[in-house]
């Protein structure tokens, strides 16, 4: 009994330590900076703890949060980020579900197909996003082909639009949708579908009433794995996205680098995190339920 208890403590303790070291402590540092004010010094913000007449005093500023709330730029960027992330999640699901389903039913080809899903990770993420510039730009491959086929006479402007942004995000995050879906779908018992068919259900009805409900945890896990990082995505919108509407990741980097305003940048980050708390908690519950089911 004592041995298994200790083992359990290990199993819980290591991830907790991981979470504290790599999430909680950095978050507290960011939270601390968000309550400071910017100034010209090393580091470029005022200390929270100051000595006055030999007594330590806490100087908390809420000005960064006040600025966030009063300037409509931030609200617009938050909403736009949520919208982009939501649209891309739905697109990933629509494309990824049939793919995951096909792989789960591919028999001997399964491992090869899975390999193909993972293969792009062997090339740098940045390089792959960059490659899309070459495909989508006015002088790019796609416009060349379309023009030489005579389908269009003027190049289509695809780069720096919502279209190119969605293409980039969906392309980059698709594996994160497919892999959890696949691991869910391949566990389904084929006997259930056979039983449904024996009882007279057509394949589509059987899918709707058996496969789909069973795969809900996979859908939830995949969607959250796409949605959460997509909200804060920085690289893809910078390279492929519109310049007239910026996602919150770029707002954050502008505040940090351009305005040299670390407190405001930290406040932006804290608010992003607060927005994502609900989906993150959901993700954890889905994962825990999956673990318990096994």
């Amino acid at each position: 009994m004592g041995g298994s208890n200790r083992a359990r403590r290990w199993v819980v303790g290591v991830p907790t330590l991981w979470l504290v070291l790599l999430f909680l402590i950095p978050f507290l540092v960011v939270l601390k900076i968000s309550f400071s004010v910017a100034r010209l010094s090393i580091p470029p913000y005022a200390p929270l703890l100051v000595l006055r007449h030999g007594w330590p005093m806490l100087k908390v500023h809420l000005s960064s949060y006040a600025y966030l709330l009063t300037n409509p730029l931030y609200l617009r960027s938050y909403l736009y980020s949520l919208q982009v992330a939501a649209i891309c999640t739905v697109l990933c699901l629509l494309i990824g579900y049939p793919m995951a389903y096909a792989i789960a039913h591919a028999g001997a080809w399964r491992n090869v197909l899975l390999m193909l899903i993972v293969l792009p990770f062997w090339t740098s993420f940045l390089l792959r996003v960059y490659a899309w510039i070459g495909l989508l730009q006015n002088n790019g491959l796609i416009n060349h082909v379309l023009i030489s086929l005579g389908l269009i006479s003027h190049p289509l402007v695809m780069l720096q639009t919502d279209f190119s942004l969605y293409v980039g995000i969906v392309y980059s995050y698709l594996p994160f949708m497919i892999l959890p879906l696949y691991s869910n779908l391949e566990k389904h018992d084929p006997a259930l579908l056979e039983a449904a068919s024996d009882l007279g259900a057509r394949p589509f009805a059987a899918f709707l009433r058996i496969t789909l409900p069973q795969s809900l945890p996979g859908i939830a896990a995949g969607s959250l794995l796409v949605f959460i990082p997509a909200v804060g995505e920085y690289v893809i919108p910078t390279l492929l996205g519109r310049t007239d509407q910026i996602m919150i990741g770029r707002v954050l980097s502008n505040e940090f680098f351009e305005n040299r305003n670390w407190p405001l940048a930290s406040a932006v980050a804290v608010v992003v995190l607060l927005m994502l708390v609900v989906p993150i908690v959901l993700l954890q519950r889905v994962e825990r339920r999956e673990l318990e089911a096994e």
Partner: peptide
Amino acid sequence: MQFMRELTAAWTAFKTGT
């Protein structure tokens, strides 16, 4: 710093076209 903040706000408005 005060002017930079106004300038960045103006600049962001320009970049976002609003």
